[in-house]
């Protein structure tokens, strides 16, 4: 497999070209070491341009200087928002109806652009968005090998993994870890990735932008409960990987998966087991003994720190 470009290179080639010229001017001169730390670019209309770095939030000035002071940040104009949106949407907001309903667009490279603006409702559901006031461009990061430790611990007999649930509070690296597990398992087994929020594979026009394994099939933008059934019937997976279970309809889908003899690896938002067990949906899932292992993550030693591995069988 060809080597993946480094994060600064990805930002230079896949994100900066989409920015409005003035924002581009501010950010293009950042040194590689700072680009490497960049997690998110936030454009808020009439507010200073902010960059979420790995360890802090900084404001970026017109001269390209980073500062902790908001007053030193370049003030984002309507023109900046309009031009950046024009670039990320290809001037085709009408072609992104599903993306607007979800509130974000995925661009080439799997980077996500979250949108802020006025929502248009129809029958109580979000139909579209307009009058955009902000954009949050999140840099997609792959950490090949971040799942190595866990891989060795979740594998069971015949080279297949245990049914595993990875839990943590937000921003602890669940999705990145899950993606690497998909990549490693997908190189050996038939894996179905149900990517409801386009975060795992970061598909751009149907093509996964992030490596989820050579033998993985991706169902993108598909609700988990529907996607699990569809994948079992149509794709004959040995392992099914999906992010963030937690709705009542997921309980039935997970059960269907187990009944079909398909292994499942998923994630859920929770601080610890107690927190998890307090949720009625998770109680249902545990009642049916769906998962054999629970992995608890934190950011204690950086995102993806394995705090505890609990065997439930």
């Amino acid at each position: 497999m060809s080597s993946k470009p480094a994060v600064p290179e990805k930002i230079q080639n896949q994100i900066i070209p989409y920015l409005a010229p003035k924002i581009k001017g501010c950010i293009a001169n950042l040194p590689s070491a700072q680009l490497d730390q960049l997690e998110e670019i936030r454009l808020r209309l009439g507010k200073p341009l902010s960059l979420h770095m790995m360890k802090s939030e900084m404001f970026l000035g017109e001269s390209g200087k980073l500062s902790r002071l908001a007053r030193e940040g370049y003030i984002v104009t309507e023109d900046d928002v309009v031009r950046t949106l024009a670039a990320v949407s290809g001037n085709s907001v009408y072609a992104l109806e599903e993306e607007l309903k979800r509130g974000f667009i995925t661009i080439r490279g799997g980077h996500r652009v979250g949108l802020a603006g006025k929502t248009i409702l129809e029958g109580g559901q979000i139909k579209s968005m307009k009058e955009f006031s902000g954009l949050a461009i999140r840099v997609a990061r792959e950490l090949p090998g971040c799942g190595n430790t866990l891989m060795g611990r979740i594998m069971a007999e015949r080279g297949r993994p245990h049914n595993t649930l990875i839990i943590s509070p937000p921003r602890c690296g669940k999705t990145t870890l899950l993606r690497d597990l998909a990549r490693q398992l997908g190189d050996e087994l038939n894996v179905a990735v149900i990517d409801e929020r386009s975060e795992l594979a970061g598909c751009f026009r149907g093509e996964p932008q992030l490596d989820v394994g050579a033998k993985s099939d991706v169902l993108e933008g598909c609700p988990k409960a529907l996607g699990i059934g569809m994948a079992i019937r149509a794709l004959a997976p040995e392992v099914l990987i999906t992010d963030e279970i937690g709705r009542y309809e997921d309980v039935e889908a997970v059960e269907e998966c187990l009944n079909a003899g398909v292994k499942i690896i998923s994630t859920a938002h929770a601080k610890d087991m107690e927190d998890l067990k307090r949720r009625p949906v998770m109680q249902e899932i545990f009642k049916q003994h769906s998962f054999e292992m629970v992995v608890i993550l934190s950011r204690r030693k950086g995102p993806g720190t394995i705090e505890k591995l609990i065997r439930l069988d």
Binding site: A86, S89, N91, S92, V93, Y94, E97, L100, I120, K127, S128, K130
Partner: peptide, 8 residues
Amino acid sequence: MGTSDVSD
């Protein structure tokens, strides 16, 4: 042009 939903 290009800035709103299909119906618009």
